[in-house]
């Protein structure tokens, strides 16, 4: 038996070698989510675009695909907002400043920010879907003058579960209209109540000039897409980001497959029109 470490003698690298990153800050966002600022030891990991994800791991626990929530162009750290739902994410929640994590990536497709230029954009986020959306919003707001009207529709279950609430004023100041909604009435809430689709009619949509970006739980897509169709937004102008189970990140393990496509390679960002032959997608 011959054993090679990290790469074969021909120089073929193992795709499974993670890069350590140091946890620089941990912020409690809600009961279930924490925001991590992580400085990767290899700065090439910071060459990511909005919509991409890392395989984030801890020795002894394994890896999980986590969306990048910071905007592109960061030079020292990236941010991940993690909900504690599984083995890896619960272990991540126990990390403190100075601890390390293992990171592979970035993986997947990005939102086509350049293509969206000069257009109006409606960002529609449900629940934790705002996490990858934040990366795109930051990318767009950085070049605000290149875009038309910008609107964020963001729905969460309750006011307590609303993520990045303290950043919304800053986004508004930079020229993003923010429409919020919660699922059920709450004495602390004076805003809109109902699912995100209840806010879509409030957005002025110009046929051919508006693009929509939709990220949320599986159940949300169908209804939002129907309602966007009513507003005459073409499937070519709708972008979604889809969640799937992932183990490898390099198009091999099969877990993320939607019909014939691998989400880790062909997604997670998809143009809605590209999903028409993938009945398992939505």
């Amino acid at each position: 038996m011959s054993l090679f470490v990290n790469q074969t003698k021909e120089g073929l690298e193992s795709p499974y070698l993670p890069v350590p990153g140091v946890v620089e800050r941990v912020t409690r966002v809600t009961e279930k989510e924490r925001l991590f600022s992580i400085a990767p030891l290899n700065p090439s990991l910071l060459e990511y675009g909005p919509g991409q994800f890392y395989m984030v791991g801890l020795p002894g626990y394994g890896e999980a695909p986590i969306s990048i929530t910071s905007g592109p162009g960061e030079t020292k750290e990236f941010e991940l907002c993690v909900r504690a739902v599984g083995n890896v994410t619960n272990a991540l929640h126990r990390l403190k400043r100075g601890d390390f994590v293992w990171v592979r990536g970035p993986f997947g497709t990005t939102f086509p920010v350049d293509e969206m230029k000069s257009k109006d954009i409606v960002f529609i986020a449900g629940g934790i879907g705002v996490v990858p959306m934040r990366s795109l919003i930051k990318a767009v707001l950085k070049e605000r003058h290149d875009f038309g009207k910008l609107t964020l529709i963001y729905g969460s279950k309750s006011p307590e579960e609303m993520l990045f609430a303290e950043e919304l004023d800053d986004w508004r100041a930079k020229g993003l209209e923010v429409l919020l909604t919660i699922d059920k009435p709450d004495p602390k809430w004076t805003g809109n109540v109902g699912v995100v689709t209840t806010l879509i009619p409030k957005v002025e949509i110009v046929e051919g000039k508006t693009v929509a970006v939709v990220i949320g739980p599986p159940v949300m897509y169908k209804f939002v897409i129907l309602s966007l169709r009513d507003k005459l937004i073409k499937p070519e102008e709708v972008f979604v980001s889809l969640e799937r189970r992932m183990k490898c990140g390099v198009g091999k393990c099969g877990h993320c497959q939607i019909n014939g496509c691998y989400v880790c390679q062909d997604g997670p960002v998809f143009r809605l029109s590209d999903l028409k032959d993938l009945p398992e997608a939505l």
Partner: peptide, 14 residues
């Protein structure tokens, strides 16, 4: 071996 801050990808074949 996390106590020694070591980790390496393994490629084994014979």
């Amino acid at each position: 071996d996390i106590r020694h801050h070591l980790h390496e990808a393994v490629i084994e074949s014979g």
